[in-house]
Amino acid sequence: MKVLVYSAKDFEIKNLEKLNGNKHKLKFVPDVLNSTTAVMAAGYDAISIFSNDDASLVVLEMLWDLGVKYITLRSTGYNNVSVKSAKRIGFKVAYAPEYSPNAIAEHTIGMLLALNRKLVQADAQVKRYNFTLDNLMGFDLNGKTVGIFGTGRIGSILVKIFHAFGCKVVATDLKRNHYLESHYDLEYLPLEELCRRSDVISINAPLNYETHHIFYEPLFMAMKEGAILINTARGGIVKTEDVIDVLKSGHLGGYATDVYEHERGVFFKDNSKNGINDEVLKELIALPNVLLTPHQAFATKEALFRIAETTIYNLDCWEEGKTCKNELGFEAVTL
């Protein structure tokens, strides 16, 4: 199968080449898939895309006209793909589930500890030989209430980790996990009640019509004063302008995020020379109670290997005419 790999990063190419062997003809390009770059796929049977590539209806129609029949994502989230349109047109689309729930859960914990205990500030301060503690106060996690929005693969791991910290863990999800309830004293609550009770809230749900901007001003005002919000899911779940307002007012204690709702065209690129034009993102980054990482939660050696493994598996299934267990239909997928 002839495959064009969009948004190819240096750190993932080696794994893809190794696991592919000589089975498929892979071509790697750094370009993001959009309505302009879709023409690059002319003559290819399949494409592989990342979370910031645009597989909306217009792009899909262009790809189909160019002869592309298969799309394999190197990500768990697929909100960048018009899945229903793709299936209607005739594409087979597969994703990469379960490649990094531990990696993302661990990054969530790392971000919380770094923000709460002011580790970034402490490091910068010590490098200036300033060893005072005046602005480095945090709080114990032990005994605090932590809210988990979404108890799928990643959220379930976080329930266990926070339970080990001695936290009371509450959650919101459409489907209750009875194992977590019985073994980790997990309590399910409506989202607004979760926000009222939690000292820390972690977002671990997929981005879809129901969750888009579900965290906005009224919900922020329902939170405890000084609470910390962590987002390692998708940027669009949080309304950025509203979170900036509550951070500036001091009502929200801090925001640690690995994602941003308008990250396409900015993230996964070195913008240090020319800067960025997104004034909202600039304002968010400048806030002292914000910790933002560049969508790196998935980026561990183990996770990147599994992504490559799944990508080649998806292509193998299609090449051999086998059923692909990762192929997307219309069902929702829980993170």
Rank of each mutant, 00 (worst) to 15 (best):
K92R: 15
A227D: 03
L26Y: 01
K325E: 12
A233V: 14
C324I: 00
I203W: 01
L189V: 11
F215W: 10
C324F: 01
Y184Q: 12
G152R: 01
G90E: 09
L66S: 06
K118C: 00
F162K: 10
V290C: 01
S48P: 01
H163E: 10
S35D: 11
F91A: 04
S48L: 12
C195V: 07
V290E: 00
E187T: 13
Q125V: 08
L252Y: 00
G138N: 06
Q296G: 04
Y179N: 07
T232C: 14
L281C: 05
V169H: 02
T151Q: 12
G67N: 07
A164G: 04
L113I: 10
Y209V: 14
V58G: 12
K18W: 15
E320C: 00
I214Q: 09
L191G: 05
I47H: 02
I49V: 10
N289M: 00
K118H: 05
N80G: 10
N15F: 15
H178C: 02
I161A: 13
V81L: 12
K239M: 05
A124V: 00
I104C: 07
L33F: 02
F11L: 13
H295W: 05
M221W: 06
V68K: 02
T240K: 02
K322F: 04
A55E: 08
D134P: 04
V120C: 05
G43D: 01
N277G: 14
R197L: 11
T72F: 03
I89A: 05
G21C: 06
L141G: 00
G67R: 00
W318T: 13
A164C: 04
H24D: 06
V170H: 07
I230D: 01
G265L: 06
L180K: 01
G321K: 02
G155N: 14
T72S: 13
F330M: 14
K322Q: 10
L180N: 10
K224C: 13
H163W: 07
H295K: 07
F50T: 04
G275S: 08
R234S: 07
L60C: 04
Y179C: 11
S85F: 12
R88H: 09
K144S: 10
G143I: 03
L136Y: 07
V290M: 00
S7A: 08
I276M: 04
A105E: 05
V68W: 01
E263D: 06
K301L: 09
Y260R: 03
T310V: 11
D173F: 04
G235K: 07
D270P: 14
I89G: 06
